[in-house]
């Protein structure tokens, strides 16, 4: 639809001051009216920054600074407990709503002890703690388990070999030494568990006691024999003394 300006004017279809149909023509001097009426791009003014804007910037910087606290640690996931070592118990915030319950402890020593007992001891002493007649001594009501903790510690650290009488029954086997395989924590947990289960009623043993016992018996390289055990009074305790036996449980422990 390339119309001449004259025809447009004749038909009264022209409008505006330019009176030109500025669709593409070969003559560039009849350029687009739109282009003609444009304003040139002008340099921006030089105006000082208003004071209120500077104050706003200052406020923003201050606010931003205070909103970012704490360091860049990879283990800190909560904004409100930067001062708390992760893993430590923190007071549970109620949050937006819906209270959270109390924090629950990890597994108890006795629960742990039972797990390690199951992993290490049941092959011989059985899960019931009854052992195998003539082969493996029972733990239930054993004189070496109840009473003082020293003999028990000795046995479990260095092992026991040769004939031994437990609860009136003779056994002649070889219990391995556990000092190299299990940590103080695990040994203490196992012994604590054993001393209060299977009908036993003796007190707990701490990892520190096991650690001291290790040092005390460091010179002993071979397993003990029954004679060694008999040389120790039945009420003797491991270094660190005895902890009180737990009160008899109201219901059965698992």
């Amino acid at each position: 639809m390339n119309q001449n300006p004259e025809d447009l004017r004749a038909a009264g279809l022209h409008r505006g001051p330019n009176q030109v149909d500025y669709r593409e023509t070969a003559d560039l001097t009849n350029v687009h009216a739109a282009v003609q009426r444009e304003h040139p791009e002008v340099m921006p003014g030089e105006v000082p920054m208003p004071l209120w804007l500077m104050v706003l910037c200052g406020v923003a910087i201050f606010w931003a600074g205070t909103s970012f606290s704490g360091g860049f640690g990879a283990s800190y996931f909560n904004a409100d407990n930067y001062s708390v070592h992760p893993g430590e118990e923190v007071g549970m915030a109620g949050g937006a709503s819906g209270g959270a319950g109390a924090a629950v402890q990890g597994p108890t020593v006795i629960e742990q002890g039972k797990i390690y007992f199951t992993q290490n001891c049941v092959q011989c002493h059985q899960a019931s703690g009854m052992g195998l007649p003539n082969v493996y001594p029972p733990l239930a009501m054993s004189e070496y388990i109840n009473g003082g903790s020293r003999r028990l510690g000795m046995i479990v650290l260095k092992g026991l070999q040769g004939p031994v009488t437990v609860e009136g029954h003779q056994f002649n086997g070889a219990m391995p030494a556990w000092e190299k395989t299990l940590t103080d924590k695990k040994l203490a947990a196992i012994l604590t568990y054993v001393r209060q289960d299977f009908g036993n009623t003796a007190g707990p043993i701490t990892p520190e006691q096991i650690a001291d016992a290790r040092k005390e018996f460091a010179a002993q390289t071979a397993s003990w024999s029954e004679a060694d055990l008999k040389a120790v009074p039945p009420t003797a305790e491991l270094p660190g003394g005895a902890a009180p036996a737990p009160a008899p449980p109201a219901g059965g422990k698992k």
Partner: peptide, 24 residues
């Protein structure tokens, strides 16, 4: 979310600082 908290703290601080260009 499951990220070290400084990621979101930094981003929130940067977002607050954006008040400067908003005003400007």
């Amino acid at each position: 979310g499951p990220f070290p908290v400084w990621y979101s703290s930094l981003s929130i601080a940067a977002l607050i600082l954006l008040l400067i260009p908003v005003g400007t």
